[in-house]
C-alpha cells in the first residue's frame, strides 16, 4: 500500500494568513505540499458547513487561518471564527470525527515562518491520525 498522504484544505483569510503564506513563499521557506489553500476575504467567511463538506468529500484535516485577535481586517471577524470553530469542534466530537482534525490558527501577514510551522505540524498530526474514514469514525 502506498504511503498515506493526508489531504488537507486550508482556509486562509486574504489579509493575514494568505499574506503570511505568500511571505513564506517569498522567503523560499519549504513545507509539506499536502494542504491546498482556499483564500477567503476573512476567516469569518468560513462556514462550519464548508468544513463538514470538506470532511465528507475526503479531507483528512481542515485548517483555518485568520488574523490575530484584534487584528482582523474587518475588525471583529475572527472572533466569530473562533466561536464557530469551537462549537464545531464540540459537534465533531458528537459526530465521532476527532476534533484534532480541525485546527484554527492566527497567522499574520508577517508570520511566514509561523505559517510554515503550523502547516507542517498540522500535516504531521494528521499523518499520525491517519486517513479519515468517515463511516468508520462516525459509527463508533
Amino acid at each position: 500500500m502506498a504511503k498515506f498522504e493526508p489531504k488537507i484544505i486550508a482556509f486562509a483569510c486574504n489579509w493575514c494568513t494568505s499574506a503570511g503564506a505568500d511571505l513564506a513563499g517569498t522567503s523560499r521557506m519549504k513545507y509539506q505540499p499536502n494542504s491546498t489553500i482556499i483564500r477567503v476575504m476573512c476567516s469569518s467567511r468560513v462556514d462550519p458547513q464548508h468544513i463538514l463538506r470538506a470532511f465528507k468529500q475526503g479531507a483528512d484535516g481542515v485548517f483555518v487561518g485568520g488574523c490575530h485577535p484584534g487584528d482582523c481586517h474587518y475588525l471583529t471577524g475572527n472572533y466569530n471564527t473562533l466561536r464557530r470553530v469551537k462549537l464545531l469542534k464540540k459537534m465533531m466530537q458528537d459526530m465521532g470525527i476527532d476534533p484534532q482534525r480541525l485546527q484554527l490558527e492566527w497567522v499574520s501577514a508577517a508570520e511566514g515562518q509561523k505559517f510554515v510551522q503550523v502547516i507542517n505540524e498540522f500535516t504531521d498530526k494528521i499523518r499520525k491520525l491517519g486517513a479519515l474514514n468517515l463511516s468508520k469514525e462516525t459509527s463508533n
Binding site: 467567511r45 462550519p48 458547513q49 471577524g77 466569530n80
Partner: peptide, 23 residues
C-alpha cells in the same frame, strides 16, 4: 468580509463571488 453569510440561518444571503456554491 462575509461574516453575515455564515450567520444567516436560512441561506438567504450570499457574498458576491464568494458564494457557498463557489466555496
Amino acid at each position: 468580509c462575509g461574516a453575515c453569510i455564515v450567520a444567516c440561518p436560512s441561506g438567504a444571503t450570499q457574498q458576491k463571488n464568494f458564494s457557498d456554491d463557489q466555496i
